[in-house]
Design a protein around this nucleic acid. Structure first.
Lengths: 339, 339
DNA sequence: CTGTTAGCGCGTTCAA
DNA sequence: TTGAACGCGCTAACAG
């Protein structure tokens, strides 16, 4: 293995000079050239562990999420990775599988690795881990919260603007003449869900439409509950809704299945807007209107925010709410426009 | 920061003893207990960079892929991560975006980080990088090739058994009475594609069905070519195929679109089996029969193979071909069974 | 089984 | 600006 020492010998300078070169300090021109040459010739590469041992920074960022296998997480990772590599940082990923034990272990491993920062994205808020997150920050490792809030934890945060994304969707439905608008969401402590529901409520309120509790379907989105039955019951009612908003991909799936069972035609018997993009939308008989999340951008912004934070630990904390994009298809029927 | 020294002091032993404890060596019982206690009390954690500096192993594994945002890659990452963490290893992910420059840079970063091994998954074989991969192995960093082969590169390899997965699908179609079976694939240098095409050829051959070149649609799967037109032309022919095999997810999408345009009903006007699972299959009017890849398992096996390789560098090289699973739905019509 | 000690490769003093 | 020397936290070799 070639070290800074070999480079110094070949360039006829001291190791201090080589070190300075590596850290972009000014050298005398001839020294600069000779060091540069020697490095190239020896194919020398900095030993990160030695550098880390000395400086306590590893140029590594950790990313912790519940699971890794959704398109959203992937896009975020892609955004993180692409941005971080520009600055010479690497990304360690870790999934918790909603298992506290595992999460603890992984966070510990990341600490051992002396990560410079942590991008943290949990769905089910594991309050048990607040102390871990706090310890990290106390030890000078900034945490960036992504996608889902933990209100009692203070750090930089990068979110999707769920409230206004949903608001716009509901508003659109209202403008198309809909008044009976169903909403599906999950009343857990996920900010993602509560924010989307908040958007629904605000839009109705602003247009003086009373919220009909019967039109709100609440329950887990992982098919563990009786949500499918609820949907079916709702749409067998006499005054069933003319439109539905599903606050996540999984609900969109479920609702579509029910409509298929009930032989209800989307865009005719029921207007439909869902949160989250749908990769195969173009294959459906009726494409679903969607509120699209800027997941890749979330990754990019989170990475940049972390890098800034590392540069200046004392900047005021930041919070981003990145805008969604609405894509309307024929899944929404117009009942006579408002205008 | 608490170090091995603090622990030693508190436990009234030497740092050597603490080090031995950390490396699971035998200690005298009372010492063992005191060290254990001190570590807990001080919340001591090993400094990985110091350890790495000394031992040249970082307990970190690199994963390089073209892009990260497909379900297959995600499942693999999940399998890798879950397995590696059990042994105290972390996973650094890096995407190349099919950009050689970027790939070089990322591999260099990984080298600096002193990764213990590399899991490598490229689609477009970048032969330019053979020298990089070789250098890694020469420097004692084993590489595990995953999913896609680079024949001229010698290392442990973990693949999906594409040939027999496809063979079984074609054989099934034949057994249902089909003789005119179309196949879509891409004749690039991806082993994935060529193997699937090989499976198609072998099955036809074994059943004495001549391969009709007109039934083979060849072209890129990213919609950059005229593949859609080719499919449409093929199914407007007089003696059009009664069945089609699509050798990847993307083709399946495209074919479905064309069939929709042509108003051909899947399972009736055309029998259909595709490679790769389809997450939203249950939402389709006619679910597509699929050959499902064991992606998660690929990750698990790759991780285990790497760990074994690290234990014993001189074991003979291994190659795995993990079996696919066929899931037949109503998308295949039976023309009179063979039996 | 334990304590002592010499580095691992680098960054950063300090003196020149 | 540069070179020499020290130490980051840990492992491993050696002597006991």
């Amino acid at each position: 293995m070639t070290t800074i020492f070999d480079v110094a010998k070949m360039a006829n300078v001291s190791i201090g000079t080589v070190s300075r070169y590596l850290n972009n300090k000014k050298l005398r021109e001839d020294n600069h050239k000779r060091v540069e040459q020697a490095i190239k010739e020896l194919n020398y590469k900095v030993d990160n562990s030695a550098r880390t041992l000395k400086t306590k920074t590893s140029y590594t960022v950790g990313f912790v999420a519940c699971t890794l296998n959704t398109v959203i997480v992937l896009d975020i990772i892609q955004g993180l990775d692409t941005t971080l590599v520009e600055y010479g940082y690497n990304l360690i990923v870790a999934s918790t599988l909603n298992n506290i034990e595992l999460e603890r272990k992984k966070i510990m491993l990341l600490e051992q690795k002396k990560i410079d920062g942590l991008i943290y994205m949990v769905h089910q808020q594991s309050h048990l881990l607040l102390e871990d997150l706090n310890r990290l920050q106390e030890n000078g490792i900034p945490v960036i919260l992504v996608n889902c809030d933990i209100p009692e934890f203070e750090c930089d945060k990068v979110f999707v603007d769920n409230i206004n994304g949903t608001y716009n969707a509901i508003e659109y439905l209202i403008n198309q003449g809909h008044r009976n608008i169903a909403c599906m969401y999950y009343h857990n402590n996920e900010s993602t869900m509560t924010e989307r529901y908040e958007g629904y409520k605000r839009a109705l309120q602003d247009y003086n439409i009373p919220l009909n509790p019967k039109y709100v379907i609440e329950g887990p989105y992982d098919r563990s509950g009786n949500v499918m039955d609820q949907i079916e019951a709702l749409f067998k009612m006499d005054n069933r809704p003319s439109a539905i908003f599903t606050s996540s991909f999984d609900y969109t799936f479920m609702a579509m299945e029910v409509f298929k069972t009930l032989k209800m035609e989307i865009g005719k018997d029921i207007s439909f807007i869902g949160f989250d993009q749908i990769t195969f939308n173009h294959l459906l008989d009726k494409q679903i209107s969607t509120v699209k999340e800027p997941s890749y951008e979330v990754g990019v912004v989170a990475a940049k925010t972390l890098l800034k934070r590392l540069e200046n630990k004392n900047d005021p904390l930041k919070i981003f709410r990145l805008k969604t994009q609405m894509e309307i298809t024929e899944s929404v029927q117009t009942f006579g426009s408002m205008i």
